[in-house]
Amino acid sequence: MDNGATMHLAVSPLPGIAEPSPAAEPDFSLLARFVQRAEAAGVDLVIFADSAPASGSDVATMPFEATTLVAALATVTSRIGLVAAASTVAHQPYNLARRFASLDIISHGRAGWNATMAQAPREAANFSRPEGFSGDDFRRRSEEYVGIVQGLWQGWDKDALKFDKIGGRFHDPEKMHLLDHKGEFFSVRGPLNVARSPQDRPVLVLSGLSASDMDIAARTADVVLLDDEPIESAKTRHDDLKLRVAACGRDPDAVKVLMNVSPVIDDRPAVTADRLEDLFRSKSCDGFNMQMPTKLSALDSFVDLVLPALRRRGLFRESYRGTNLRSHLGLAGGGDL
């Protein structure tokens, strides 16, 4: 069943335990049920924040580190995309590229990395950089970092692995490539010691973008998350970004713009659906990132009340078309699109 619709939908469980109780152990099964419910509803992807302590708070915001959580969730789901935030301050690029390449294989091509271009105020102080980075340095460093990660994800050609027991060739030596990156902040030889992604490479989701980060997004991102805005300014912003994407020689459709929305659905599902429809039909975005508490009840109201309205209006597809995240998002490289 396919109604031809192209709106993309992500769900972001908001950091913060739904009903915090000091005695409760972190509960994986609640998160698993949450994601399985989103998968049953056909949502494209779930995006997990990864919290360093927010200033003035020392409570657990999400009880698990996001990449480990996604690895576990990958084994209890089969279609939905799984995106984890991971900080460029907390990880070395080689390690981060490996972690996500591995997640992508564990999930059979459903993984993505959410990189934020905004510096988390307290984070650097826990990573032996009490002075942090200047805004400009952080931007240049982030761009270099993203380039390394994407480069490492391409170190092995699609047909590099031969598995030829008799001939004694495990892989084709010609089809493995060093990165040999030497830059302002990093020096990384490569290649990754993880095989190529089943969806060509993991999906890159950029968030926390300021106006001066838009060219980086245009060059590198598969998905950008932008904050909620009124239609006119959202449309201007969207069109501007797509022009920049084209200026980089990429297909404007190669970057999907998802708008962050945190709807209060319970009493007015039709109003929420109207607003999403208006934003989408005016081409202010390619879809939405629904931010909600990590509660089944919050997800249920979206899935049971808003999604059917979107489907009736021909805005959201009836079911998954492919098996990997790129194919859900209509991105090239998805293989089985």
């Binding site: 209890v76 972690r99 591995s102 294989i105 692995l161 495990f170 084709d172 993880v194």
Partner: peptide
Amino acid sequence: AISSQTSRSIGFEPISLLSALAV
């Protein structure tokens, strides 16, 4: 020329692997 004759150039990153095995 050597590594392509062994299976040790590619594999899972172990923390993600064990997180998957955990559940």
